[in-house]
Amino acid sequence: MKKTVVRTASLIGVVLAMAPAFALDGQYNFQHPVTHLAEDIFGLHMLMFWICVVIFVAVFGVMFYSVFAHRKSKGAVAATFHESTTVEILWTIVPVVILLGMAWPATKTVLAMKDTSNPEITIKATGYQWKWGYDYMQGEGQGISFLSTLSTPRAQIDQGEWKGDNYLLEVDNEVVVPIGKKVRVLLTAQDVIHAWWVPAFGVKQDAIPGFIRDVWFKAEKEGVFRGNCAELCGKDHGFMPIVVRVVSQQAYTEWVAAKAAPPAAASAPATTDKAAPSAASEPKPAAASAS
């Protein structure tokens, strides 16, 4: 009995706590963050949202009061005032103060996002029209290299076949990373600009051909997290998703072993062999969005 009460109370508490964020992880707001950075970003987002709501209510409360009260049809007689230095200075200063309040946490988050130092694993993601290539460059799993393409069947896209939950968000080779490890992702592209985006990690970074950029994340939860290419990159821009599977350290070690064992004989044993991805993309960027 007592247990039920506690449970109900805590449930109500949880619901209340989550109410401001509408339904978290629902249709209305950001996906549930699984990294500390994504949590910070989520917090910033909600802070901004609430500040905007408060200003919205205040400003439009005044406006709509005026719209209803100061009507000619209600016999309102127009006043003639047309300036007030005090008021005008006040409503310039107050927004500046509010902005300063927003700028502080935002700056801290920017600095945290840029801190890509001391990664435990470094993965290079290369954008191709229209797929992603991954090379594990440093840390456990170094040398693993594969391409990741959309695995949604063409019939689902073109012929209106029944669509699964992960329609357009599923790939043949997922990126696998261990939980709680700092992963640095290096980004570049083969042809045009792409962007590597995993909403739950709070990570989005353009992949620019000829240049290299980096972002980092440290997933705090196991699971499969999905994202999309977020920079228009041509015909199949909407068909090159990103899927990251966060697993336990043990499962990761097993995955690395399985991944490294069989193909080692086939491809050169070198650590950062570029042959596979570049050969695959070399001849022409054929329409290979779905396989």
Partner: peptide, 20 residues
């Protein structure tokens, strides 16, 4: 210092002999 190598639309095998 980490080293990385890419080729763009070029069928060369290009790699650093040390990763870092």
């Amino acid at each position: 210092v980490q080293f990385d190598a890419n080729t763009r639309n070029l069928a060369w095998r290009f790699k650093p002999l040390q990763a870092s």
